[in-house]
Design a protein around this nucleic acid. Structure first.
Lengths: 129, 129
DNA sequence: GTAACTGGTTACATTTCGGTAATCGGTTAC
DNA sequence: GTAACCGATTACCGAAATGTAACCAGTTAC
């Protein structure tokens, strides 16, 4: 998909896909804050993420040289993750989006993904017979 | 999902989800370039998008006040779309991501999403019996 | 002997996403 | 009568993303 699927040739597409999965930006954020975190620490910091998805995200970020995985072969093992310079740069590049996000949130904006079951008023226009 | 699912409370999450679907950034880009476009024009400009997905994207952006749909009830109908100020601001906020995307692309970076079927060497480590 | 520790992997189920093809509505052109 | 026009919607399907739960390894503590 990485290339054959680059229909639009939009340069942001691959970065967006790198950043877009659920919790990914939050993981980046935490790693920027804390510098280095172990797997279990991330499990605790990212609310309700599963080990599977966390591992998926970390391996994906590692494959793309956005973070580095360091393993100590002690028993039990100790594995920690930290961002590379590219990873930090990626996070920094989200600054603009972050600012506008804060602004919109302050203005009460919320994403409407279009699930009508959350509209509770029940009152809707009736077609005249 | 819009709120109950905001697990991380990361302010960027909803914006990222607004921007993330396939072709969404490209649609924003085109609307910024052209100012106003009709449905059929967008169909032509966005390569290989289907009417269904284009309609999905447009309705989603409209629901979130990122673009405005204008319909003339002629026969055949004429419908055009243009970004709101918020829509333009959202697009502008992707500037940082755009810059880093250009830089990385120039450096040869490509997203590796991890599908091993594209690695054609066939040679992989064998377990010693 | 068995549970806990850490950092995962695996199989499976469910949910969501995107793609294809058919259809609609009202009018005009053939 | 029927095809084209435009802007969709609908039903259906397969693929991809995500969630859940069980399990693994090697050692220590009980």
């Amino acid at each position: 998909m990485a290339d054959a699927d680059n229909h639009t040739n939009c340069p942001m597409d691959p970065l967006l896909r790198a950043v877009t999965g659920r919790w990914t930006t939050y993981i980046l954020w935490r790693l920027v804050q804390e510098g280095s975190l172990r797997f279990g620490e991330l499990m605790g910091l990212v609310p309700s993420i599963s080990a599977k998805v966390l591992a998926d995200r970390l391996r994906m970020l590692e494959r793309n040289d956005l973070l580095i995985r360091t393993q100590k072969d002690t028993i039990p093992p100790e594995v920690s993750y930290e961002l590379t310079e590219d990873g930090k740069a990626l996070h920094a590049s989200l600054k603009g989006l972050h600012l506008i996000a804060l602004d919109w949130r302050a203005r009460g904006w919320q994403l409407d993904e279009g699930f009508p079951e959350t509209t509770d008023s029940g009152v809707r226009e009736q077609e005249p017979a």
